[in-house]
Simulated scan of single mutants.
Amino acid sequence: MTITQLYYVLAVAEQQNFTKAAEKCFVTQPTLSMQIQKLEGELDIQIFDRSKKPIELTEVGKKIVTQAKNIVNESYRIQDIVDQQKGFIGGEFKIGIIPTIMPTLLPMFLKAFIKKYPKIKLKIEELTTEDIISRINEGHLDAAIAATPLESPNIKERVLYFEPFVGYIPKHHRLSSKEKINTDDLEIDDMLLLEDGHCFRDGVINLCKNFKSQNEDQFQLESGSIETLIKLSDEGMGMTLLPYLHTLDLSEKGKNNLHYFNEPSPAREVSLLYHKSELKMQIIDAMHEVISGIIRGAIAFQNVNIISPLPK
């Protein structure tokens, strides 16, 4: 039994196709098939049910794949140990970032991070929280940045910052005359929300439902982007809540529509996520250090009340 054979098994389990798995592993399909058959022969079992289309794992195959993930991850740790011993911080690093964080945080830290750690090859994807959890668990992401806590047993969360919610309230709205707002001022039926799948949407709903018993079905307008919510609000279609970093680049006219909460301000917790196996920790530590250092200059709020991003 070899690490390579187990890696091939994981590829087929993911792709459910020998040809696609071989392409992913950069080997020929006969080579990959032969190695898997050799492993099955050694164990005297069938890992895959090849009669199914697409290919499926057998019951014992499912158990083998679970253990193979652990073994392959632990094999990667050997390279981590060597890199740390040499003081090397580099190589490919795959990170996912949720859509409501990507456009504001990434431009703040990316240039500084690349300059400080030029040997790291970042691969960045914009992903939903659900996809992030799945990909970290499957080993397809090294880390991610998302709103927390997520209560996922295999994922560690390392807090980066707390980002307050800010009301964006157009003129002539019932709350526009208030200098500061409270959470019990919010009425969910005049709130513009992001579409399903965004954890910031769930945070806003959780915030409102703490104080109002409105029906979620009353929402008439939802959008896939915060920028669209701002434009709809400017048209008098309702108010919305923004993450604080999204307020920094507003026009002066837009900033006139901002209304901050009385303390403690409702806020989201933003964290660096990674698998409990703690692979590539030297890069995770470096990213946490850079982002934390930059964000301290942008967010001075301390007295906050963290709102859960989990749907209820």
Score class of each variant (00 low, 15 high):
Thr66Tyr: 14
Glu42Cys: 11
Leu105Asp: 02
Cys208Leu: 11
Glu23Thr: 03
Asn305Phe: 09
Glu278Thr: 01
Asp217Ser: 14
Thr66Met: 09
Lys180Ile: 08
Gly87Phe: 14
Met191Thr: 14
Pro107Tyr: 03
Ser33Met: 01
Ala146Gln: 10
Ile132Val: 14
Glu179Gly: 05
Lys276Trp: 03
Ile181Arg: 11
Glu59Pro: 15
Pro107Asn: 08
Lys178Cys: 04
Leu193Met: 13
Pro264Cys: 04
Lys111Met: 03
Glu289Trp: 01
Leu141Gln: 09
Leu150Asn: 07
Met34Trp: 12
Glu14Pro: 10
Ser251Gln: 04
Thr104Met: 03
Lys276Thr: 02
Gly203Cys: 13
Val65Lys: 03
Tyr260Leu: 08
Met281Pro: 00
Pro107Phe: 03
His246Met: 07
Val60Thr: 15
Glu235Trp: 04
Phe200Cys: 08
His288Asp: 13
Leu248Ser: 10
Leu186Tyr: 07
Met102Gln: 09
Ala22His: 14
Lys178Ala: 05
Cys25His: 06
Asn154Thr: 09
Glu42Gln: 14
Glu289Ile: 01
Ile291Glu: 14
Lys121Asp: 10
Val166Thr: 07
Thr128Pro: 15
Asn305Cys: 13
Glu23Phe: 14
Lys123His: 10
Pro54Glu: 09
Val60Tyr: 14
Lys231Asp: 06
Met108Leu: 12
Glu59Gln: 15
Ile295Leu: 14
Asp234Trp: 03
Tyr244Asp: 06
Lys116Asn: 12
Glu130Gln: 15
Ser265Leu: 02
Tyr244Cys: 05
Thr240Gly: 01
Arg268Tyr: 00
Ile120Lys: 00
Thr228His: 06
Ile133Trp: 03
Lys178Asn: 07
Lys212Gln: 14
Ser51Lys: 08
Tyr168Trp: 08
Gly293Ile: 10
Gly91Trp: 08
Val166Tyr: 06
Phe93Glu: 00
Met239Lys: 00
Pro264Gln: 04
Val290Asp: 13
Lys38Asp: 15
Gln79Gly: 02
Ala11Ile: 00
Lys171Met: 05
Phe26Arg: 10
Ala11Tyr: 00
Val159Trp: 00
Gly236Asp: 03
Ile98Ser: 11
Ile55Ser: 05
Gly87Asp: 06
Asp249Phe: 10
Arg77Tyr: 15
Tyr168Met: 06
Asn17Arg: 02
Pro309Gly: 11
Ile133His: 02
Ser51Phe: 11
Gln35Val: 10
Glu23Cys: 01
Ser33Tyr: 06
Glu56Met: 09
Pro170Asp: 04
Pro264Arg: 05
Pro54Gln: 08
Val270Trp: 00
Ala298Lys: 05
Val159Pro: 12
Ile307Gln: 11
Ser51Asn: 07
Leu279Met: 06
Ile133Lys: 07
Val270Arg: 00
Gly236Ile: 04
Ile181Gly: 06
Phe48Lys: 02
Asn182His: 11
Ile95Thr: 03
Val12Ile: 06
